[in-house]
């Protein structure tokens, strides 16, 4: 089966010719792996999860993340992680892990005054 999918081979006003392979039925996509993207805009901030993307490998994922999630800003630090490598908590375990433990007030740092000029808290 031919798998020549080209920019020029579609419908409408796109030029076609002997040099442009005609679009044939789209082959089944093997699919690129999914990566989770983390950005840190400035030193002193944490990397923050901003989304995910498909890429053929990790290096291309960083490259694509610069395009998709930043404005090609070279000063931004980018991490990518294969989504398959993320170990996540199960929603079924929600109660024991995330129950607010409202009775344990010492878990919540609510007794401190945060000065106005301290950022990122």
């Amino acid at each position: 089966m031919s798998t020549d999918v080209t920019a020029g081979g579609g419908h409408g006003a796109v030029p076609t010719g002997p040099d442009v392979p005609v679009r044939t039925p789209v082959p089944p996509r093997r699919g690129w792996p999914l990566y989770e993207v983390f950005l840190r805009g400035k030193r002193g901030l944490n990397h923050v999860h901003v989304g995910s993307l498909h890429a053929p490998d990790a290096e291309m994922a960083v490259h694509a993340a610069r395009d998709l999630y930043t404005r090609r800003n070279e000063g931004v630090s980018i991490w990518v992680v294969r989504s398959a490598d993320v170990t996540a908590s199960s929603p079924d375990e929600k109660d024991p892990l995330f129950a607010p433990s409202g009775d344990k007030v010492y878990r919540h740092p609510t007794f401190y005054e945060i000065p106005d000029d301290v950022p990122h808290i």
Binding site: G41, K42, L45, V48, P119, H120
Partner: peptide
């Protein structure tokens, strides 16, 4: 002034929108 989110930080650090349509 500080940025609340990573997006704010990115915008502030960039400051040049000229390559966007």
């Amino acid at each position: 002034m500080h940025e609340e989110t990573v997006y704010d930080a990115l915008t502030a650090a960039h400051g040049d929108d000229a390559r966007w349509a």
